[in-house]
Nucleic acid binder design. Structure first.
Lengths: 207, 207
DNA sequence: CGCGCGATATATCGAACCGATATATCGTTG
DNA sequence: CAACGATATATCGGTTCGATATATCGCGCG
């Protein structure tokens, strides 16, 4: 997972359900995506600041002051690095704004960059927020992309299979099989999406 | 493909076979890896400079001056950006050095970071340069990693399958199936590696 | 009782990569 | 000979990663 613009969607998607701070955001993300992706701090916190600057999220004050702050005295004995107030256990809670909701939807709906595995995976995790027709559109885009990838594999094999060693050959074959398996999975999702109705067509080729 | 340290191995691996310039390097890389990975210029050229600075590669003068350079006159009419000599069709040919050969081998042999899909894919493309025992070691590391990933999937499913929606569930299931398929592929590679000898053991579990 | 240790929580740094873009030349083709 | 696509190198800005720093909280354990 390293494509740019990967964090916005899941961050907004989780904040849409309820307000959270960074640490919890990461835990939720891990739960949701399992072994697919472990978000790094070095991308999560900058993303939160980015979203805040765009006005897509805003920081809420901690729910309850609770213990009262008895030590508002200077307390700068340790030289805070660069940002204001660098002390422990802060719990900067972020909540989504209407603008953030809009951004979330526009990112989720966009079909252009939805094709690569990472972006698609992320979108699927928030598929429930899309209308069925948009879901179908995204699924079909992904399918077309995979079909194209498969064709590239085949072309590559046709042209170069004499020139590549057995390991690379095995790699290509496994890549093809995986892509084929991905396509079948997408087809299953498409079938589920359409209910069980129509589509008595026997074969799956469409490209 | 975005993990750091991804370019060094294939660049050195290709230059090991014969000297090339950047553009050709990229074409060869595309041929070898097919649809797996398209290297971007923004990473390839900086990598070449990085490797040059480390002394792992060096630029060779163009094979033949050929047409003779009749215009060694100033010719600075266009303000070259930052590097010396910025004109067209330069063909900066890179060749590997002994130090580069060493670096190639050490990167290829290291087992630590060999586990993630991208690095493993890249290593496999140069597997022929490894001794059979090192190949087996790398394959088994990869297998253990995948087995662990599978276990994480299972644990995740066990703990959260009630709380996640059907799309995320399908995602997890497909992820598990893919990982399982990857394991079987690795097992096949391991079997091939061992020749056909021994290992009459019926099941594949080893973790 | 206090001491360490692990979980909680935020932040930053440098390195690496990507996508887009700029620039220039060469070969072909109409 | 002009247009165009392939060849060829380079840089910029933005994003992510991995490592690391810092600090606090809660718990167990001697």
């Amino acid at each position: 997972m390293k494509q740019p613009g990967m964090l916005e969607l899941p961050v907004l998607g989780l904040l849409k359900e309820r307000s959270m701070h960074g640490y919890e955001l990461r835990k939720q993300l891990s739960t949701m995506l399992g072994p697919f992706w472990q978000v790094s701090w070095g991308s999560l916190y900058p993303t939160l600041r980015r979203l805040a600057k765009e006005g897509a999220v805003e920081t809420a004050p901690p729910p309850k002051p609770f213990k009262s702050k008895a030590k508002t005295t200077a307390r700068s004995h340790k030289a805070q690095p660069a940002a204001p107030m660098t002390s422990g256990r802060r719990k900067t809670v972020y909540q989504i704004t209407p603008k953030g909701e809009e951004l979330f939807t526009s990112i989720l709906e966009e079909t252009a960059a939805a094709v690569d595995a990472e972006h698609f995976t992320l979108k699927l995790a928030f598929f429930r927020y899309l209308r069925p027709e948009t879901r179908l559109l995204l699924l079909e885009r992904r399918r077309a992309y995979l079909q194209d990838k498969l064709a590239q594999f085949k072309a590559n094999m046709r042209d170069y299979k004499e020139r590549i060693d057995s390991y690379t050959l095995s790699l290509q074959n496994h890549g093809m099989a995986s892509t084929q398996s991905d396509i079948e999975w997408i087809d299953e999702l498409i079938r589920n999406e359409r209910g069980v109705e129509v589509t008595t067509r026997p074969e799956t080729s469409q490209a």
